[in-house]
Nucleic acid binder design. Structure first.
Lengths: 200, 200
DNA sequence: TGACAAACCACACAAATGTGTGGTATATCT
DNA sequence: AGATATACCACACATTTGTGTGGTTTGTCA
């Protein structure tokens, strides 16, 4: 796990407010931070920012409004929790095992240009844990490796999500469901599955 | 499908620049837009913003720096493709069936405060399409409904992901795997599964 | 005791940023 | 021909926002 720089409770509050605002798409101004946290002087806020910058959690650009950026270390993370002490009504900080970087988890630094989504229909990939209604995020590629799950274009102009198999140099497609036979007909790989998302 | 408001090429360029900057986390100022697009007057940019606002693509707050927001209509969307015409080497626009809003899909407007993640261990939910290594996004809640998949705190202080069942008013937990017996011991619901994400 | 950091405030000033008025030119539609 | 929309510019001004200086108080550590 990562070591966290020590933050005073107040510094943590400031950081969290920045996180919240960054997540909401508009980083705060110095005065907005002050207002939220109850500081009457902009100098106070600047002291906090200075501290956060020194601790490597925040970056800033000079003379630019709202130009507060979270560094890697501080960027928005969703806590991953493990075991929790009994008796505590809420999830306490101490029990957090680590963090997933939200940006990373959800999209990461993919060029959006070569990514598209397929909404999965049917149960042909059910044994691979891909269910009807899931959204499959595909990265465009003209080829893939053995065992990769790919989006492929079939002769009937349909796109299907299947596992790519290489049998003695010859590629074919396989469903992840015994009820569906393998596909040996002509197809073209249009992309590779990189992420599956399911909403409940 | 959605109808797109007609945009002039220049308006489109302005919108795209805003999109880019919003994606990079800091919406542009009016002058930054002008600089990028080669406009020498802030008035010009304001004209464009006015047009985009009128077409429902952009929202603004008065007297706030960088307070440009993309509306639902304009916010980043990943194309969902369906069938594709054969012979075309690339995925063409026409074949796009619709869009998933990236923000919405990946996180949406959840209060970050009450969301956490569990990395799934083991195969106890495999029949629900939740595999070892998947990330389960949980929204904190003290209760849930019958058949919801929940994160529950057991007596041994472990958190587990299981399906909540209500049998004659009495709740218990069930795995989605015949190899795991239902859990009738004491537990506390700490949250409800809202999203599953799997990276390949 | 002295040094230092955390945690504040007031206030002046500079720079960035948004607003508003009033233009020009070109093309299209009626 | 007149109305309307697009596509610009200049420039003054108001407001917001960032910067900088110089404080006070409280507690901790050596």
């Amino acid at each position: 796990m990562e070591e966290k720089p020590y933050l005073t409770p107040k510094q943590e509050k400031v950081l969290n407010f920045i996180r919240k605002r960054v997540g909401e798409r508009l980083p705060p101004t110095i005065r907005e931070i002050g207002e939220e946290l109850g500081f009457k002087s902009t100098g106070t806020v600047r002291d906090y920012l200075k501290a956060l910058i020194q601790k490597g959690l925040v970056r800033r650009m000079n003379n630019k409004s709202r130009a507060i950026e979270l560094t890697e270390r501080a960027s928005f993370k969703i806590p991953i929790i493990g075991t929790i002490m009994a008796g505590k009504p809420n999830l306490a900080y101490e029990e957090i095992q680590g963090y997933v970087d939200a940006d990373d988890l959800f999209l990461g630094r993919l060029g959006f240009d070569d990514v598209f989504a397929l909404r999965v229909k049917g149960d042909s990939m059910i044994d691979a844990g891909i269910l009807d209604g899931d959204v499959a995020i595909i990265k465009k590629r003209p080829n893939a490796d053995n065992n990769d799950i790919v989006a492929a274009l079939l002769d009937n102009n349909e796109v299907t999500l299947k596992r790519l198999r290489n049998r003695a140099g010859k590629f074919h497609l396989e469903a992840a469901n015994a009820n569906y036979p393998p596909i040996f007909e002509e197809f073209k790989v249009i992309g590779k599955l990189i992420t599956v998302i399911r909403k409940y």
